[in-house]
Amino acid sequence: MGTPKLARIPSMRDRVEDTLSAHRNELVSLLCRYVDQGKGILQPHTLIDELDNIVSEDEARLGLRDGPFGEILKSAQEAIVLPPFVAIAIRPRPGVWEYVRVNVYELSVEQLSVSEYLRFKEELVDGPSNDPYVLELDFEPFNADVPRPNRSSSIGNGVQFLNRHLSSIMFRNKDCLEPLNDFLRAHNIKGM
C-alpha cells in the first residue's frame, strides 16, 4: 500500500487564476457587471445574483457557478468595486479570511493582506492616498489573558464563554469577590 501524498491546498488567488484561465469570457462578463454598478460595496446576495444572471443567460456558463469560483462567491462576505478593480473578502471557514483583488481590464489577480484590503476599502471614501501612515489599532495586548474558544461550536457564544471564564476566576480566588461587593454597594437602587 502506497503512502498518501500531501497536496498543497490552493490559495484563493490560485483558484481565481485557474477559473480565469478556464472560464475567461464568463468571468470577465461577471466582473464587468460588478464594475458597471459603479464604485461601492457589494453584498454577498448581489454577488450571487449577478452570477445567477450570467448563468441564466447562457447555460454553457454553468461551469462558472458550479466550479471553484462559484464556491468563492458563496463564501464571500463583500466585494469592493473601484474600477477597474474588484476586491473580494472571502471567509472560507470560521475565523479564516482571505482577500483577493482582480483587475478587470488587465485580468490580473493579487492576494491582499488585511491592511491592504482595508486601505483599498478606505479609498471608496477618501480616494487614492499616498499617505504611508494609516491608523491601525492593535488590540492584541488586551487579548493576552483571555482564552479563546477553539471549537467551531463555540462560535456565537463568546459572551457566555467569557462569563464562564470570568466567573470561574472570581469564585476560585476569594480576593476577587471584594471588588464585586464594592461594586454592588456603590450601585444600589432604593437601598437595595
Rank of each mutant, 00 (worst) to 15 (best):
E26S: 05
E110Q: 06
D145E: 10
R101W: 02
D14L: 12
W97N: 13
S21G: 07
Q37S: 11
N157I: 01
Q111R: 14
R164L: 08
A89N: 08
N181E: 11
L135R: 13
L112M: 14
S168T: 11
I48R: 04
L27C: 08
D126I: 13
D36R: 06
L184M: 14
D145L: 15
D182V: 08
V102M: 14
I48D: 07
A144P: 00
K190A: 14
Y117V: 04
G63V: 01
I90G: 00
I80M: 07
E122M: 12
I169A: 13
T46C: 04
L6G: 08
S108H: 12
L180H: 11
V86I: 10
R185C: 03
G2F: 09
L118H: 07
K74Q: 11
D126C: 10
R91T: 03
E110N: 03
L47Y: 01
P179F: 12
N157H: 15
E116A: 15
L118Q: 06
N25F: 11
P141H: 08
E122C: 10
A186V: 01
P10H: 04
L135M: 06
T19A: 14
P128N: 10
R24M: 08
N143M: 15
S29A: 15
E71D: 12
V28L: 10
F171I: 08
E178W: 02
A76N: 03
D175Y: 02
K190D: 12
P179G: 10
D14T: 09
R93N: 01
P141F: 04
G40M: 04
C32S: 08
T3K: 11
H165D: 10
Y133H: 14
T46L: 04
L51N: 00
I88A: 00
G95T: 03
Y34H: 13
I189W: 15
L184D: 04
V86E: 07
G158I: 06
S113N: 02
R101F: 03
I9H: 02
